[in-house]
Amino acid sequence: MRSMAHIGAALTAIFMLSPLVILVIFCFSESPLLAFPIEGWSLRWFDKAFSDPQFTNAFRNSMIVTGAVGVTSTLTGTLAALALAKLPPRLATATAAALSLPVMVPPLLLGVALLTFYSTWIGLPLGLPAVILSHLVFTQPLVMLMISARMASFDHAAVEAARDLGASPIQSFFHVTLPMIGPSITGGTLIAMALSLDDFLVTFFTIGGGMTLPTLMWGMLRKGIDPSVNVVAVTIMGLSIAATLIGFRLTRYRG
């Protein structure tokens, strides 16, 4: 019975991890065929991908979107979390639930709804600005939730003590509140950025003609087997996993 549980957990862990490991291995494989055994190692797919102007362009677009989404959703999400801490508990719970609604809607629905809204009602041209606005919808609640979790154990007496010792409201925010919740804010930002970087569905419907890394990858997948797609996939995965892990580490998030 005990060993069954150990084996089950190990199999689950292998199941979760193996596709990612295989992807990394293929990136360094000499052969254009994605098959085992690996016959030789090389970096040629990295060379090929990184020298492709489409890749550079998509990478730049991804960075623009991710950066803008990270900064904006951090601002609005942090402000919302600070506000929630001031509201009466029941109102705060209701407001947090309302702001988190977008997380519960499948990305496909969000994507096509925003596409219809932009193009047939308000006449917003599709493109990077439209993508950035769309990403805010599902990244903002994440930042808010992560900072709210920190605010739940926040010692409000420390802020009052700062006021008591002569600090103005603004001074006490910068001297006490911000240093105390700072790591959570950075963590929330990184996770919001990871989510934005990896998003394919919402981006696909709102970007129009341009490309980010995921839509570039989609195009390559549709066209046929080009092994440099592995490099694009690894780039997306590496960046977002790194951001997520640093983010979780900073917020000391555990489940």
Partner: peptide, 11 residues
């Protein structure tokens, strides 16, 4: 000046 119940020290 106040000494707070939970102390309110700056961590």
């Amino acid at each position: 000046n106040m000494v707070f119940q939970g102390y309110g020290l700056f961590p």
